[in-house]
Amino acid sequence: MINYFKTIYQVSKALLQGMAVTGRWLFQPAITVQYPDEKLTPPERFRGTLVFDKETCTACNLCVKACPTACISLEPYVDPATQKRIAKVNWYQIDFGKCNYCRLCEEACPTKPIKSVRHSHDYEWSMKERSEMFVKWKRDPSPVIADTPKDTGTKAA
């Protein structure tokens, strides 16, 4: 009989304690962020969408080899005058439908001090069509004075 009332007391006490916890949080400030109005700044190492710098890229193909999902493709630039390949890209394409945002391409990239392909801090991106996910950077049509291939230009083969 005592146990019966004891159980009732314990049960009601535990339930009231639970209500006290939720009641306390009712008056605490919220921790959420009202997204379109307020935005969090991503940390330094944030892996946002990939950006590509077609000027510094040496078309060394290391990022293509490093990518686990084979979403990067590129074509080195061949000088039409001399028929020689130079350490520049003709075009460079990333299929963002496949991209893993894993940073392996950025780590493989040998350009210094700023990597040619790297993660930006941009995270607001949406596409309506699958074809839009293929982002292509093309070499400017303006002629560039032929510069000598640098360190890794030969690895493309």
Binding site: T22, G23, W25, L26, F27, Q28, A30, I31, T32, Q34
Partner: peptide, 13 residues
């Protein structure tokens, strides 16, 4: 609103 504030969020805003 009540449930949101109990859960540290704001609910419809």
């Amino acid at each position: 609103k009540v449930s949101a504030h109990m859960q540290s969020r704001l609910g419809p805003m």
